[in-house]
Simulated assay, not measured.
Amino acid sequence: MAGHSKWKNIQHRKGRQDALKGKIFAKLAREIYVAARSGDKDPANNHQLRLVIAKARSQNMPNENIERAIKKASGSGTGQNFESITYEGYGPGGTAVMVEALTDNRNRTAADIRHIFSKNGGNLGESGCVSWMFERKGILVADRVQTGLDEEELMLVVLESGAEDIESTDSNYEITTSPENFETVKETLEKEGLSFSTAEVTFIPSNKVEIHGDAVKKVIQLIYALEDHDDVQNVYSNFEANDEELAKVMDE
């Protein structure tokens, strides 16, 4: 599971964050709007809305932005009608790629996503072609230094909270939960004083593909191109590459 935080660290490199900064909050606002519009506007009574708000807060989205998106969804009239669509395909090196999108024009978005795959050495596939390689899990990432607990003590607290697993990297602890237990585990650990740089229910690859050399660069270029599309909310891939090759690509 530790590969998840490795990819998050790549995404969060300063240059990448600066490039995406104008889009991150806009995409989160769209997710909040859709979750609020499809259910109760009170997060206490809307599970999906609570999950999206937790994700937004882990990205340091201001409360006023969150409240504005909910208020917009509460407005009178028909509003915007966004459709949730998942695209599946293959990237360079035989990697699997899943793309979650929210769109108000299915035909436009499908054509755009197909073009991005093709332009970057991939192929858009049929529904179900790669989703079987991923599992839906809750992920909580905490900074090792800021936890205030030693590793053994933290592991005990985490497992008692109902989490499935905890793994450590050089800088983080990565806690895995079932989607159903995500909120309970998060709230329990926050009461223990933990804060999280990542808090979301996401897709984790259960079947990974190791890539090297030029394939690493091509896969990351494909993922970046997909993430840059306004309708794309999340991109998942099952690639695995060593730190040195990843660092080299990121520094180019």
Rank of each mutant, 00 (worst) to 15 (best):
E152P: 02
G122M: 01
A215Y: 07
L246I: 14
H115R: 10
N123V: 13
S161W: 01
N120P: 00
G128D: 02
E244I: 10
P179Q: 02
D228A: 13
E167F: 03
T184Y: 09
S127E: 13
Q221P: 01
E160S: 05
F196H: 04
E227R: 10
V201G: 12
Q233D: 13
T147S: 07
P179I: 08
C129W: 01
V201F: 11
G213M: 08
K208M: 14
A163L: 01
E244F: 12
A110Q: 05
I223L: 12
S131P: 02
I223T: 14
T109G: 02
G148F: 00
A142V: 03
V209Q: 12
F239P: 01
E244M: 12
S206L: 15
T188G: 09
V232I: 13
E126R: 06
S195E: 07
D230F: 10
E153W: 08
S178P: 00
K191Y: 12
V235G: 13
V130D: 04
N207Y: 15
R144V: 09
F134H: 10
D104T: 10
L159A: 12
E164C: 05
T184H: 06
S161P: 03
S195Y: 07
D231V: 11
L246F: 08
V232N: 08
T109K: 00
S171E: 15
I220Q: 14
V232Q: 11
I175T: 00
S178N: 02
D243P: 04
E210W: 11
V145G: 07
Y236M: 11
L156D: 10
E164Q: 06
N123P: 00
Q233S: 15
E240V: 15
L189A: 07
K186G: 09
D230M: 07
F196N: 04
N207W: 15
A241E: 11
M155W: 06
S195H: 09
N207A: 12
L102F: 09
N120Y: 04
R106K: 09
G213D: 07
E200D: 11
W132I: 07
A241L: 10
V209C: 11
N238Q: 08
S127I: 09
N120D: 03
M133T: 05
W132E: 11
K119V: 14
K119P: 09
E164W: 01
E192I: 01
A163N: 01
E192R: 05
E245C: 05
T177E: 01
V141K: 02
S131G: 04
S168R: 03
Q221L: 13
A111Q: 14
V201S: 08
D104S: 11
E164G: 05
G122C: 02
L226A: 10
D112I: 12
V130F: 02
N242S: 15
A241P: 06
D243I: 11
Y236L: 08
K208G: 14
E245A: 11
T202D: 14
K208Q: 13
L140W: 01
K137W: 02
T103G: 06
V145I: 08
L102K: 03
L124K: 00
N105P: 03
Q233P: 14
V157C: 13
I223H: 06
Q233M: 15
Y224H: 10
G193N: 03
E190P: 02
I223R: 08
T198F: 09
D112W: 00
